[in-house]
């Protein structure tokens, strides 16, 4: 029975459910599932920076916005197809992520947190006030994606596009953390001095974490602008920073699959409480406190305690010893 609940099986069931969802669920459920897919990207990306590399940095909500604005504006102003706007949004966010990394590499702990939150606020200000480019506080509508010649409507198209991206991005991330990159991240999180004396270039590996994380956030942003069809600054405010942070903590900090789990849990909670925006924040705070106090390792730690087949080695398991 317990073996049936191994990660491999649960993930397989999850993929099947996501894959066939549009055939039986209503448009609202599909929309929520699409949000969950997008947040999986955000959560997995942030977890590499925050959980694996241990950098207390929060640039991702802003990079999420950069991805959304870039792809949305390219679509609006130049009428480019999604297969150009989407990678362009992701790439530009990654570039900005690298630009933030350069000054942030010198900061640590609380100062790093403050500096990156300041960046998030500054980005928000740019989104809201650079009227000639971003259309200011009111934002802009994004023309729907056109999937022709494929015979699918835009919402279904975006849904499956998101699913495909998640099915590619999560395994790629999983490969990264199970290589010398993931081990270097955990090493520098646990002891920078020890990591350095083992030959790990701290600057380079921190920069890698910012870049990979920015790529995930930017990709999610590009999908987000297409999914909502409207881009406004308030989608990328501090609440967004908190949502991402919550996903990582509640799912399991330093665990890639915990990030996936956290995104699904929190999107579910957000939707249940959608009509009570005030309650959302209280519920978030409560959940965060509960996790930190009762299960510091997040939901994934509880699962790992009771079920076999959920552990996450930082290496590939080749031949059995």
């Amino acid at each position: 029975m317990q073996a049936l609940l191994a990660r491999r099986n649960i993930v397989a069931v999850g993929i099947i459910v996501f894959a066939i969802l549009p055939t039986f669920a209503n448009a609202y459920i599909v929309f929520v599932a699409n949000l969950a897919l997008m947040y999986i990207l955000l959560s997995v990306g942030l977890n590499m920076l925050l959980g694996y590399a241990g950098q207390l940095a929060f640039p991702n909500a802003a990079l999420f916005g950069v991805g959304a604005y870039t792809s949305g504006l390219l679509r609006l102003e130049f009428d480019l197809p999604y297969w150009i706007t989407l990678p362009a949004g992701a790439a530009f966010a990654t570039l900005i992520g690298l630009a933030i990394a350069l000054p942030a590499l010198r900061l640590r702990g609380l100062y790093l947190a403050l500096a990156t939150i300041a960046f998030a606020q500054a980005a928000l200000w740019v989104f809201g006030h650079w009227n000639s480019v971003t259309y200011g506080g009111a934002g802009f509508r994004v023309p729907p994606m056109d999937f022709s010649p494929l015979p699918i409507d835009p919402p279904t198209g975006i849904y499956y596009l998101s699913l495909i991206i998640v099915l590619v991005a999560v395994p790629l991330g999983w490969n990264i953390v199970r290589s010398r990159i993931g081990r270097a991240w955990v090493a520098l999180r646990e002891s920078e001095v020890a990591a350095e004396t083992l030959g790990i270039d701290l600057t380079r590996y921190k920069a890698y974490a910012y870049v990979v994380s920015g790529l995930y956030a930017g990709t999610a942003g590009a999908l987000f602008s297409a999914l909502l069809g409207i881009v406004t600054p308030e989608s990328f405010d501090l609440f967004q920073v908190i949502v991402h942070f919550c996903m990582v903590i509640v799912g399991g900090i330093g665990s890639l699959w915990g990030g996936v789990l956290g995104a699904v849990i929190l999107v579910g909670l957000l939707e249940v409480l959608r009509t009570f925006r005030d309650l959302q924040e209280i519920a978030f705070g409560g959940l965060l406190l509960f996790t930190v106090l009762v299960v510091p390792g997040g939901a994934i730690a509880m699962i790992k305690r009771y079920l076999p087949g959920w552990n996450e080695p930082l290496r590939r398991i080749g031949k059995k010893r």
Binding site: I176, S179, R180, V186, A187, E190, S191, A194, L314
Partner: peptide, 29 residues
């Protein structure tokens, strides 16, 4: 200064860092 969150083998493998060549790209794929 052993790294928490790693097994003994993973800790030791981290010591081989300089002999490995993987980059984020080659590792991802």
């Amino acid at each position: 200064k052993l790294f928490k969150g790693m097994t003994v083998l993973e800790n030791v493998m981290t010591g081989a860092h300089s002999q490995l060549r993987a980059t984020p790209l080659s590792a991802a794929f």
